[in-house]
Lab assay of single mutants.
Amino acid sequence: MTYKLILNGKTLKGETTTEAVDAATAEKIFKQYANDNGVDGEWTYDDATKTFTVTE
């Protein structure tokens, strides 16, 4: 399945997608991606749209 991440960081904003077997796997990938890019904030997930959002 395709999952989407919306980044609302102070210095980085944008979107990315990943292919993952489930939401938990996608979350791990996205949290590593956000960490690698210096984004740390409040996480939400919308199962209907398979979208994670992180807001600093």
Rank of each mutant, 00 (worst) to 15 (best):
E15W: 09
T17H: 11
I29D: 05
M1H: 15
G14W: 15
D40P: 04
Q32W: 05
N37I: 05
V21I: 15
F52E: 00
A26T: 01
V39A: 05
F52W: 10
T55W: 11
T16L: 15
T2P: 08
T11E: 15
A34N: 03
D47M: 15
K13H: 05
K50M: 10
T51D: 01
A24E: 10
D22M: 04
E42F: 11
K13R: 12
W43V: 02
V54T: 03
T17P: 02
G38Q: 08
L5I: 04
T25G: 07
A26R: 00
D47L: 12
V39K: 02
K28G: 13
V39G: 02
A34G: 04
E19F: 09
Q32P: 02
K10V: 14
D46Y: 04
K4P: 00
D40E: 15
F52T: 01
G41P: 01
I6D: 03
L12I: 13
G9I: 06
D46R: 03
T17V: 11
I29F: 10
T16E: 14
V54S: 02
E56M: 05
N35A: 13
M1D: 13
F30N: 00
Y33P: 00
T51H: 03
D46F: 04
E15A: 07
Y45E: 01
E56A: 05
V21K: 14
K13W: 09
K28Q: 12
T16P: 03
K50S: 08
L5W: 02
E42M: 11
L7G: 02
G9P: 03
T49S: 10
A26Y: 01
W43D: 00
D40Y: 13
D46V: 06
D22K: 04
L5M: 05
A23I: 14
W43H: 01
F30H: 01
Y3G: 00
G41M: 03
L7K: 02
L5V: 04
T17W: 15
M1P: 08
E19P: 06
K4E: 03
K31L: 07
N35R: 11
Y3W: 06
D40H: 10
V21G: 12
T44R: 09
A24M: 13
G41Q: 02
K10G: 11
Q32L: 12
T51Y: 03
N37A: 13
E19M: 07
E27N: 10
E56H: 06
K28T: 14
T18G: 04
T55E: 08
T16A: 13
A24R: 11
D22L: 04
